[in-house]
Amino acid sequence: MTDLWNPDAPGVLRLPSGRLIRGRALRRPLPDGPAPVYAVHLLGTPPPSVAWEARWLRWPDFRLPADPADARGVLREVWERAVGERVEVACGGGRGRTGTALACLAVLDGVPAARAVAFVRRHYDRHAVETPWQRRYVRRFTR
Rank of each mutant, 00 (worst) to 15 (best):
M1P: 08
T2E: 10
D3W: 09
L4H: 05
L4E: 01
W5K: 01
N6G: 05
N6L: 11
N6R: 11
D8M: 06
A9K: 03
R14W: 05
R14F: 05
R14H: 04
R19K: 15
L20A: 05
I21E: 01
I21V: 15
R22Q: 14
R24W: 14
R24Y: 13
A25H: 05
A25M: 08
L26K: 01
L26F: 10
R28A: 15
L30M: 07
P31D: 01
G33S: 01
Y38H: 14
A39M: 09
G44V: 06
T45R: 07
T45D: 08
P48G: 12
S49K: 10
W52P: 00
E53R: 09
A54G: 06
L57D: 08
R58M: 10
R58K: 14
R58P: 08
R58A: 14
D61W: 07
L64A: 11
L64K: 09
L64F: 14
P65C: 07
A66W: 09
A66H: 10
P68Y: 12
P68H: 12
A69K: 00
A71V: 11
R72V: 12
G73V: 07
V74P: 00
V74N: 03
L75S: 01
R76S: 10
R76V: 15
E77Y: 04
V78K: 00
E80V: 12
A82V: 07
A82Y: 02
V83R: 10
V83H: 06
G84K: 08
G84V: 14
R86I: 12
R86D: 05
V87Q: 01
E88A: 14
E88W: 15
E88N: 10
E88F: 09
A90T: 08
C91N: 02
G92D: 04
G94E: 08
G96A: 07
R97P: 05
T98C: 08
L102W: 05
A103C: 07
C104L: 08
C104Q: 06
L105D: 02
A106T: 13
A106Y: 12
A106Q: 09
V107S: 03
L108T: 00
D109M: 06
G110C: 07
P112E: 08
R115C: 05
A116V: 11
V117I: 04
A118R: 11
A118M: 02
H123W: 15
Y124N: 00
Y124I: 03
D125K: 06
H127F: 14
A128F: 11
T131D: 10
P132D: 13
P132R: 11
R135S: 13
R135A: 15
Y137W: 15
Y137S: 04
Y137L: 07
V138K: 00
V138L: 02
V138S: 01
R139Q: 10
R140L: 15
F141M: 01
F141V: 02
T142D: 04
R143T: 13
R143A: 15
